[in-house]
Design a protein around this nucleic acid. Sequence first.
DNA 1: CTGAAAGCGCTTACAG
DNA 2: CTGAAAGCGCTTACAG
Lengths: 342, 342
Amino acid sequence: MPKKNLITLKKIAQDLGFSISTVSRALNDHPDISIKTKEKIKAFASKFNYVPNLFARGFRTHKTNIIGVIVPNISHYFTSTLLKGVLEEAEIHGYKVIISESVNNITKQTEMLQTMNQFGVDGILLSLARETKNVDTILNILEQVPLVLVDKVSTKVPCTQVVIDDEDAAFRAVEHLINTGKKRIAIIKETESSFTSEKRYLGYLRALRTYNLEIDDTIILSSEDISIHQAKRLANILISLQHKPDAVFAITDGAAIGVIKALKKNKINIPEEIAVVGFSNSLNSIIIEPKLTTIDQPGNKIGSVAMKYLINEINNENNISNKTVVIKTNLIVRDSSFKINK
Amino acid sequence: MPKKNLITLKKIAQDLGFSISTVSRALNDHPDISIKTKEKIKAFASKFNYVPNLFARGFRTHKTNIIGVIVPNISHYFTSTLLKGVLEEAEIHGYKVIISESVNNITKQTEMLQTMNQFGVDGILLSLARETKNVDTILNILEQVPLVLVDKVSTKVPCTQVVIDDEDAAFRAVEHLINTGKKRIAIIKETESSFTSEKRYLGYLRALRTYNLEIDDTIILSSEDISIHQAKRLANILISLQHKPDAVFAITDGAAIGVIKALKKNKINIPEEIAVVGFSNSLNSIIIEPKLTTIDQPGNKIGSVAMKYLINEINNENNISNKTVVIKTNLIVRDSSFKINK
DNA sequence: CTGAAAGCGCTTACAG
DNA sequence: CTGAAAGCGCTTACAG
């Protein structure tokens, strides 16, 4: 299936009576070529809509100008904003982006890494599937092609990692609850296999310790892959306690929304009786009522920063770093934790 | 920047004392090659982690196994579900997907089409930027590479198009409102430049005519690129009318949510006084209260069907069709239009 | 069953 | 300032 009637350097050379070399150089603005010749060749090329065969060029130069991106789930809002940043940054630097979705399946993730490498991508941006414990393949790939981890990362991989300040953000979220007078703050989180959830949990613990609040296991609830539905279930457990919490820090906006729905169903006043804070600043956080206090994760920025680092490593091969870049987040206070006009 | 220590056919041939041709054939399971030779070569290849240079192969065979996808906005929920379907289907058939975002910018869209074509993608899946009136570039590209339009399409381009049944879906949404006893149904839509909005508007008109309801321009409101905020503004206009509507059909879920927020602020009962119906079945539609009656657009399916058609056209070049494939949608009735438990 | 050779479209060191 | 030629890694018609 050859592409149809694409004009090549050879054709231009023949028609104009130059050599292929000269045509190639003229089109690439090589200083050796005379201005006259350049003009002639360029005019002809644009007249006949010449476009270089990037595949041939890439094959020749070992540069594909393609960057592979693997994310766990493309239809999460945060991921799509991250990809937006990735695409924008890539475009600025003349890279194309191949996107794949691991669906949180580790085998698939491994396959994708291998295919991308085999394909000859110039670099790989990876957000890890949940429970990626065995990082052998990743280490192997890392020897062959620049790789940057973003958002879902692992300390086991010695490469540049771009993340948000999960622990600190969680600390600030809980601190905010404490500042509004809350003393018994529950947390709804994921199980240990979630890297980000664990870091947020650490921030939660640090905040309680810092302010000398009791850490009570009965109000520390976990669920694998937390959903609105799961969060409702856990919230109901909290409500049924004798000694109820007066606030809930939920590890994701989805979880927080589940909590709010459960509280409303039980006619519990938010935030007076129980305040709720989420994490992500997803679109839903301003749809739910009361509007959700949450941590704004600037997906766009995270994506573009990660891309910048990756492109930098592509251009400076011996510049293999394993620094962790932390992107700052902001606490956005809304009605679910603190009503200003009351 | 050559890729590091990648083993090639040549190397295998040298080490094993075969010709490059034989090695190539053995690895591609060509029937000519003896089983013994194949085994030997394959064993050696896998031992040394041989991976074919897909770039060289693509260059040689004029097949890149890459499909280019251009969407207006990657961070719309519907788009991300569509992309999910696209990625899944592509993977099944061994294609990689390059995703670009036109940000609804026509110039950018044109550039992207050209770059992708120049890049040598095997096919292009395109969802048009708003206001794509001049389709010359697209027609030009269409001559060179298989192209399928999806979701945001245009009748001006003679190619396969995959869309949802906008008009019919809108008809059913409005019919549902009529069936619940509503007689004065407003519509909040986008301006004429939006292809899908116009089709939904036609469905609205057809429903009113079918049931002999008056068509009243004072309750037909439009806004360019409708947002929650814009919808609130338009809803306030409707509320301030002497002769208020008893239902609102909003062209998107976002618009419907804006309407609901405005109605709630004005203490108007939903759906008793004014019912609301949206379009998309976005995640938000079950977050808002009352939950939103809406049209479920199966993004996944739309993406995978479009991909199927595109791949089919790639494999059968003379099979240039311009049929329009219509994907069925479902009306999902929720509390914003009809409360079952009351 | 196997090999020598051409060629995909480009870039670039070398020569003049 | 310009050209002839090699070569990137592969596939495949042709020959034996």
